[in-house]
Amino acid sequence: MTKTVFITGATSGIGKATAEVFAQNGWDLIIVGRRGKRLYDLQDHLRKAYKNEVDVLSFDVRNLAEVKENLENIKDKLGRLDVLVNNAGLAAGFDRIQDGKTEDWDTMIDTNIKGLLYITKQIVPYFIERGKGQIINIASTAAKVVYEKGNVYCATKFAVDALSKSMRIDLLPHGIKVTQVSPGAAETEFSMVRFKGDKDLAKKTYEGYQPLTGVDVASAIYYTATLPDHVCINELEITALAQANSTHVFRK
């Protein structure tokens, strides 16, 4: 039987690459994001390339009403869902705490924490009913080691770390896997978003070393989803060779 994966933040970067990797391996997909045109372009590409069933849900994970409405509309498909990838997330701004913008804080907290919770809350009952399923939460090396000017972003990823561990405990009696994948620096749209379109600042993030790509991370995500039923990777941290953690990068 064909398996199905639900991926948030699928319009770019790690989320888009994850959709591609799962589709290449014969999975059906439900892809979620705010930018509808990108989602439909991805849907068209995946259908043509791999002949998969690909459903599009264009909404904002920060909006609970939108989450509930959109997931209610596909409840039949959620009833046979195998894997949820909570990938939607971002960094907004790069300021010391005293200079931070509260609107940036709200955006990160609402997306990285509340959005993850809203999606998970709606999908977990289907996993419980089936007695199986897997939640893959995308965190960061910033969930482990804080860095200068990372304050609220790091706090949101520390929250994802705590939530992943507690979900694993809470869902243990129901046969549900919970995995956290924590990537280091990956050259995606992450820095462009953080620096609000400043290409020069975004480029400097990856100067002097070879960072991860979205495909590198997506391949690791796929691996965690394809192990035997009795095996669960609770946590996987992945960095470029040149990076030890969120504060130590060797640049040539």
Rank of each mutant, 00 (worst) to 15 (best):
Ala142Tyr: 08
Tyr147Pro: 09
Tyr153Val: 12
Val160Gln: 03
Phe190Leu: 03
Met167Gln: 14
Ala142Trp: 08
Ile176Leu: 04
Ser164Arg: 02
Lys165Ser: 13
Phe158Met: 05
Lys144Asn: 13
Gly184His: 02
Phe195Lys: 00
Ser182Ile: 01
Ala155Arg: 05
Thr156Cys: 01
Lys157Ile: 10
Gly150Asp: 08
Ser164Cys: 05
Ser191Thr: 12
Ala155Ser: 15
Ala186Leu: 00
Met192Gln: 10
Leu171Ser: 06
Ser166Phe: 11
Gly184Asp: 02
Ala155Tyr: 09
Ser164Phe: 02
Gly150Ala: 07
Phe190Thr: 07
Gly184Gln: 01
Gly150Cys: 00
Leu171Pro: 02
Met192His: 09
Ala162Asp: 07
Phe195Tyr: 10
Ala185Ser: 12
Phe195Val: 01
Lys144Trp: 11
Leu172Glu: 15
Glu148Thr: 15
Val193Ser: 12
Arg168Lys: 13
Lys177Met: 07
Arg194Phe: 03
Arg168His: 12
Leu163Val: 10
Gly175Thr: 06
Ala186Thr: 06
Lys177Ile: 00
Asp170Gly: 11
Phe195His: 09
Ala155Leu: 09
Pro173Tyr: 08
Thr179His: 01
Gln180Leu: 15
Val145His: 02
Lys177Pro: 06
Gln180Ala: 15
Asp161Ala: 15
Cys154His: 07
Ala143Gln: 05
Gly175Arg: 11
